[in-house]
Design a protein around this nucleic acid. Structure first.
Lengths: 253, 253
DNA sequence: GACCGGGCAGATGTCTGACAACATACTAGG
DNA sequence: CCTAGTATGTTGTCAGACATCTGCCCGGTC
């Protein structure tokens, strides 16, 4: 039995179809504004039933990539795929790359400490249990732009302590997914403008009182367990954040 | 026939079902973490086919309200419905109310002016065509918290000039939908921390140099036409903004 | 010639019934 | 007591058909 198919078969067909269509749009095979083939035609071409194809199209519609019009057809949404979208891009690395710059890491260090009460609550741990803290200064084209402080349950790396060192060099999301097999399903992020205090200012090599954007968030794995809690201080003019606001769709309440 | 005709067209059944389920979750009839009835049972209860029900469930899943597990069932997502979600709530009025405060409007005024080049581009208009500008100070429990400046194509209110006055008292989104029959489908918002300049400081009654969050955005109607372009200056500590980050879902590329 | 209305093809929306793949709980066997 | 197989229920997928809506062609009318 070939093992290579296990991965593919594990995911629902509708998800595979969604990815395939998403790729075609990205590659420009389906230009913005153009009409997709009709559902029966597309379903035949992709080798799935129309019901499965519709599941995929529904997902693409909710992502804003296509627009479906009853009786008219399904159309590729008019471009506007925002560059640095806070609600789609995870992590500082992606944000820096989306801005067309090279992401780097400086002054990285990590240690283990008992969770504070509030931190334990955020990660749904028992107060006092071990938490791995990773502190890093992220650079864009060599210039410091973000000070980040990430916290994750110590048990995740208890059996593979070398992974903590790995996080000093790579994106934590990358380590979580590739080395630990933990995919982030969603996260809840909050932000607020702040002034740089003396500690942050020194790490980022900026004057005290400079404008910063503070972002704190909790990321959850696909089974709803909190995996990562992080605090970030972004230089105000490092990059521009964008959010796609989806309309309610529903009325009255 | 008056232009204010906001006739409720027959919405697809799947959308009605989605709303119904969304309501049940909101009302607590379906507690967080609980399992929904099986698809055949729910479909029968709601009087639709299983295919239609699945369309609705797919939409709810993409909104993050439910989680579907192959072979196990569909579950209501574990609460965490963030209060002031920037990607779900539109407009300052909603944001203030979500924070549990009373929304008010002060120092409101409006005028018509020719569109600048950049503004015409944002609204996809011809440079120099008329644009309605609405400038307001929004208050929460009577305290100024946001200075907003909204711009929309003049043609929208050309035949009903009194609507411009209406916008000085109510939410613009509310006027657009109820009086003009224009529903906002989605918007693209960007934000950045800034310091209050002398003009903004005087309007918001704060010291010059105070911390603010600047948000600028463009909202689109359901047929993809830009309808509203707005700039807002928020007090840094007025309310806390939250964004739900959805994971990629797709891997490999 | 310009305008208006009906009809037609094509698209998405919905329905029905069935089977396949998967997760869980239970039971028989060691 | 523990393990492995089975039974059952759930979601995923399939097939075909009909309903409803949109856009366009086309002919009639002024």
């Amino acid at each position: 039995m070939p093992a290579g198919n296990v991965e593919e078969r594990a995911r629902p067909r509708s998800v595979q179809v969604r990815d395939e269509l998403s790729h075609r749009i990205d590659r420009g095979l389906l230009p913005a504004g153009s009409r997709l083939p009709s559902e029966p035609a597309l379903a035949t071409e992709l080798g799935v039933s129309r019901a499965t194809l519709r599941e995929a199209l529904r997902a693409l519609e909710n992502e804003g990539l296509v627009r479906r019009m009853w009786g008219a057809g399904t159309f590729v949404a008019d471009g506007r795929r925002v560059a640095n979208s806070l609600d789609a891009n995870f992590g500082v690395t992606d944000a820096i790359r989306a801005a067309g710059m090279e992401a780097g890491i400086e002054q990285a260090r990590h240690w283990m400490e008992p969770a504070t009460t509030s931190e334990a609550a955020r990660l749904e741990l028992q107060p006092g249990s071990d938490v791995l803290v990773v502190e890093r200064v992220r650079t864009a084209d060599g210039k410091p732009v973000v000070l980040s402080r990430d916290m994750l349950p110590g048990r995740l790396v208890a059996k593979q302590p070398h992974l903590a060192d790995e996080m000093l060099k790579r994106s934590i999301y990358d380590v979580l997914e590739r080395d630990l097999g933990i995919a982030i399903h969603h996260g809840v992020a909050s932000f607020r403008p702040v002034r740089a205090d003396v500690t942050v200012a020194r790490r980022l090599n900026i004057p005290r009182g400079e404008l910063l954007l503070a972002i704190w968030q909790v990321d959850f794995s696909d089974d709803g367990v909190p995996v990562l809690s992080s605090y970030e201080y972004h230089l105000a003019d490092a990059f521009e954040f964008t959010v796609l606001r989806r309309g309610p769709g529903r009325r009255l309440s």
